[in-house]
Nucleic acid binder design. Sequence first.
DNA 1: GGCGGCATTGCGGAAGACCACAATATTGCA
DNA 2: TGCAATATTGTGGTCTTCCGCAATGCCGCC
Lengths: 205, 205
Amino acid sequence: MNPPCAHIIDDDEAIRDALQWLFKTRDVACATWPSAESFLDAVQPDWRGCAVLDIRMEGMSGLECFDALRARGNQLPVVFITGHGDVPMAVAALKKGAFDFIEKPFNDSDLVDVVMRALETDAVRQRADATRETVEARLALLTAREQEVMELILAGKFNKVIADELNISMRTVEAHRSKVFEKMEVRSAVELAQLVNLVRGRPAA
Amino acid sequence: MNPPCAHIIDDDEAIRDALQWLFKTRDVACATWPSAESFLDAVQPDWRGCAVLDIRMEGMSGLECFDALRARGNQLPVVFITGHGDVPMAVAALKKGAFDFIEKPFNDSDLVDVVMRALETDAVRQRADATRETVEARLALLTAREQEVMELILAGKFNKVIADELNISMRTVEAHRSKVFEKMEVRSAVELAQLVNLVRGRPAA
DNA sequence: GGCGGCATTGCGGAAGACCACAATATTGCA
DNA sequence: TGCAATATTGTGGTCTTCCGCAATGCCGCC
């Protein structure tokens, strides 16, 4: 798996070099890209780290690059750097989920701190994604009937009640329940609830 | 309980009047305040709705007002209005949880749409808060030992295992378990898990 | 037509959870 | 000192869940 890396994307070579130098002095692994297009051409789904984007660039802008990343399902944290105060742009970017917005001139240490926090946030997200994918893979193994039974288990209902609601025998519920536990790799309904809640957010109140 | 209301906070009377008129034409209940101080003096914890704040005001600024609200635990959504592009201020406010940031001159309809979404967001938050308070009140009824037993139940463990881990008899675990279910007003471990997860966010992976 | 997967069901038994009744010991407080 | 709350435990019983063994029927596919 790729190690985490801060991707510096700026059409200004001097800026790229300066940021690369700055990050290296703080032991932050980084790569530079002269344009949004070049980065998007190269970026792989399994890359970890963050992107540091100049918001105004020749060709594709920083915001367009951000939109393109999200459109392809890439969740790398993105830190914007801009030279000109532009409130609607900053607001739009943050509301779309940009990690942070840094205005020039900036304090070098502040930028590096933001980037390091972005890298850590990405590490946490990747671990959460791995867990979610595991759970979703297991959920995908369930037949339609097993899913129905599982939902009623998660609703806290007893087997007898589930049997009544699905108009099947209690033994059938037992059989499905057993299969659900086996496929989800749990040993109790509580374990099942905790596991499924990892990928569903909070259960409905 | 107070009905939801959009609080207009601006030291410029003309702005207050204009916004009040605008909101009224769209049937948005609102109140006006000539200063952040006057609003903070009056605001009550049970108020619902949102605050529409000018960011630059005589005396206490919009950001200071926002900080003061959050400092006293008030979670009303806050929409900032500003006349001057100021990226760090906008970024700082959004990262602190401001609902939105509108720059003058703005489209009337856009502002009203944002305010209506803020009001809806507050309604959702209030319902979630009510639920959380109910659950937390029940959790507060548990003795220390009951809490210990509950944690192990939520970890999916069988009574026998819990007894071994706590060095008590299985009958004692049964007794505590029964009390936990009674106080939390649930009938099964799954219901308990779902209820507690409402206030704890996602269970640990 | 046969096969495999899935859904369904029953029987019998073991394991786990729940509960009523009953009891003792500890601790903090009035 | 007495009382109430909490913690603890046992006995006996019921209810729920789990599981092995055994079986039939439906459906889609080769």
